[in-house]
């Protein structure tokens, strides 16, 4: 009787240990600290121009792989040569993650693109801080790439909503419309510094 209990307990213990070992396996981990991610954002050296991308595409360079983050439907309708389709919502799916790891291990540069520029920004930053370091973003996304290609790789104006450049001189615009300079500036109220709420009473326990 006592022995059965012992055996059962031992088995339970072994089971728990096994569960521990297996459940921790495919876990993602941050490889960059928050500060390093910030530096990465500030550096802004991760853009690849469509022309560069086109050259790679034409020369069939083996050091680069394009990652199409759009829906499979859009991918089927047309994509860059040498592009693999990994929809951005499914990045974490096991086989896609494995694929990305393989590219990474082979030392390939991964160029991410979506329909427009911004679609790639989030996935880029996410992958960048979870262990991938040879990443680039195709400037302007697929739309812009096509337009550049259509213009015969001539210089094409950057499409809207690619950069953080302001499209208006906001202050001047407001002045122009309202004709009352300074009004807005006055309206800027300094918000009250929020006081962090103290934890109210807590139930204290004792043995």
């Amino acid at each position: 009787m006592k022995n059965t209990a012992k055996i059962i307990l031992t088995l339970l213990f072994v089971f728990i240990v096994l569960v521990f070992l297996f459940s921790g396996r495919n876990q993602l981990r941050y490889t960059l600290s928050a500060e390093e991610v910030l530096l990465e954002i500030i550096k802004e050296d991760y853009d690849m121009s469509p022309r560069e991308a086109n050259e790679i595409s034409v020369n069939k360079e083996k050091t680069t792989v394009f990652i199409d983050l759009r829906d499979p439907v859009l991918y089927d309708n047309g994509h860059l040569d040498q592009a693999v389709n990994i929809p951005s919502g499914k990045l974490l799916d096991r086989h896609f993650m494995k694929m990305l790891r393989n590219f990474h291990d082979e030392g390939l540069t991964m160029v991410l693109y979506g329909q427009d520029h911004r679609e790639a920004v989030g996935p880029f930053l996410f992958l960048r801080q979870t262990g991938f370091n040879r990443l680039k973003i195709l400037t302007g996304g697929y739309d812009y790439f096509q337009r550049v290609a259509a213009s015969g790789n001539g210089v094409e104006e950057l499409p809207e909503r690619v950069s953080e450049e302001p499209r208006y001189d906001f202050a001047a615009l407001i002045e122009e419309i309202g004709g009352a300079p300074g009004q807005v500036q006055q309206a800027i109220a300094q918000p009250v510094i929020p006081v962090r709420r103290e934890k109210t009473t807590t139930i204290q326990g004792g043995c």
Binding site: Y30, I41, L125, F126, E164, E165, P166, P194, R196, R197
Partner: peptide
Amino acid sequence: DYLRAPGMEKVLYSNDDIMAGQAWILCTR
């Protein structure tokens, strides 16, 4: 104290929303 102010809905903005989006990812992390 601003970013972690309880009960406040913090809305990030920049000229476009690319930078705000990057800031969002960093802060959420």
